[in-house]
Simulated assay, not measured.
Amino acid sequence: MKSPILKEALFTILKSEQEIAAKLQEITALLAASIPYYDWVGFYFKNGDKEELKLAQYTGEETEHTLIPFGKGICGQVALSNKNFIVQDVSEQENYISCGWKVKSEIVIPIFVNGENIGQIDIDSHTVHPFTKDDEVLLEFVCHEVAKLF
């Protein structure tokens, strides 16, 4: 699916009258259905005042990683660094939390509201080296638009 069509579908979801949780669930489903190598798509958000992330809406296989301490794994590192993190081959990453044997790569993009990192979108792929600059730009756009919900 081309980015303009995907962006149009995203705007339709964001403008809907649904609750935020339903919108986020639809966004994860849209991304997973639109991009063949997006095998797991989910949102993690800061868990209150705790130094951890809590899994919110996702599309893909269930994960036991519903709480991730800051600093642990790719998501936990992004919670501290406030920077995008792309891992093209998870076997080369020391601080990686495996969500399943099928996962070969991961991209995590933070979500900022008023300059504060409130959460992130996390994409796992069963393919090694699938992510391009286009993925990063698309997911930054998604995070920018999702931030407007908060």
Rank of each mutant, 00 (worst) to 15 (best):
K23P: 08
L24Y: 05
P4H: 07
L53V: 04
V108A: 12
T12L: 10
A9R: 13
G48K: 08
G76N: 04
Y38L: 01
T132K: 13
A147G: 07
E116D: 02
I97L: 15
E19F: 08
E8R: 11
P130G: 06
Q93C: 13
Y58E: 04
T59Y: 12
I111N: 05
I35L: 14
L53M: 13
N117P: 08
Q93F: 15
T28A: 09
T63D: 02
W40Q: 02
A147R: 06
C99E: 10
I86T: 12
D124K: 03
G73S: 03
G119M: 06
N95G: 00
K72I: 11
V108D: 06
D134G: 12
L67E: 10
C143F: 10
T132L: 14
L10K: 00
E26K: 12
D134E: 15
L31F: 08
E92D: 11
G73F: 00
E145N: 11
I118D: 05
K104H: 10
E136D: 10
T66C: 03
E94A: 11
K7H: 14
P110S: 06
K46G: 03
V142L: 05
Y37W: 04
L149W: 09
K83D: 13
K23A: 08
V137C: 00
A147I: 09
T59P: 00
E19N: 10
I20S: 07
M1D: 06
G48F: 03
G42Q: 07
L30D: 03
G115C: 05
D134N: 14
L24F: 05
V78L: 05
D89C: 01
W40E: 05
L31Y: 09
A29Y: 12
N84C: 07
G60V: 10
C75V: 07
S91D: 14
L14G: 08
A147V: 04
A22F: 11
E106Y: 06
Q57S: 10
M1S: 10
V41W: 07
C99P: 08
W101A: 09
H126T: 12
W40S: 04
T59N: 11
N82H: 12
G42H: 09
V146T: 07
